[in-house]
């Protein structure tokens, strides 16, 4: 399912709002999660899971094509951990 399909499915369930509004809501949800992580926050959605940032140290990498060494700087990556309910659902 893509975001467009999610918005479509939502607008069929939430009939009293326009599709435009539904689209704004879906976008706001993901944007606010992104923004919160960028600000160093942590998101916990009960029944679904949590998002946080994990740090990666700097390392020396290699360009697989040319074999030349490249410097990979330290960075942060978004990490999602599935919640209990979600874990159970996919195993149902």
């Amino acid at each position: 399912m893509t975001k467009a399909q999610l918005i479509e499915a939502m607008s069929q369930k939430v009939t009293h709002l326009t599709k435009r509004q539904t689209e704004m809501i879906v976008n706001t949800i993901f944007n606010s999660i992104r923004q919160s992580l960028a600000n160093g926050g942590k998101i916990e959605i009960r029944g679904f899971g949590s998002f946080k940032l994990r740090s990666r140290r700097m390392r020396e990498g290699r360009n697989p094509k040319t074999g030349s060494q490249v410097h990979v700087p330290a960075k942060r990556v978004p990490f999602f951990k599935a919640g209990k309910e979600l874990k159970e659902i996919v195993n149902g």
Binding site: Q21, I25, T28, S32, I33, G41, I43, R46
Partner: peptide, 16 residues
């Protein structure tokens, strides 16, 4: 940030 905070963002931006 929790579900209620996301709901707050939606409330501010979309006006529901």
């Amino acid at each position: 940030m929790r579900k209620a905070d996301i709901a707050n963002e939606v409330y501010e931006r979309v006006g529901i």
